[in-house]
């Protein structure tokens, strides 16, 4: 399925959680994976969501350090 992390389209497995999409985003941007636990993840409405929040096709999330 495709989701957007900080406007980058990420293709990730069905049933992925927010942390999986962010990990792929960090790898693609050649950023340290350790940032995952230092940052916060928000949905398209600006609400914080958990690392293990389930994702669905077409969802947009933001990762902020």
């Amino acid at each position: 399925m495709n989701v957007q992390v900080n406007r980058t389209v990420i293709e990730i497995f069905e049933g992925a959680q927010a942390q999986h999409a962010v990990l792929r985003y960090l790898v693609r941007r050649r950023l340290s994976k350790s940032l995952l636990t230092q940052g916060r993840i928000f949905d398209a409405w600006g609400h914080e969501i958990g690392l293990d929040a389930p994702l669905h096709e077409g969802q947009t999330i933001k990762f902020k350090k």
Partner: peptide, 20 residues
């Protein structure tokens, strides 16, 4: 595992599915 499936950013047609 889901971590490996996430960090392995390589070309493939199937991204897979979680078995829950």
């Amino acid at each position: 595992n889901s971590y490996t499936a996430s960090i392995a950013d390589s070309p493939r047609k199937d991204q897979g599915r979680a078995l829950n």
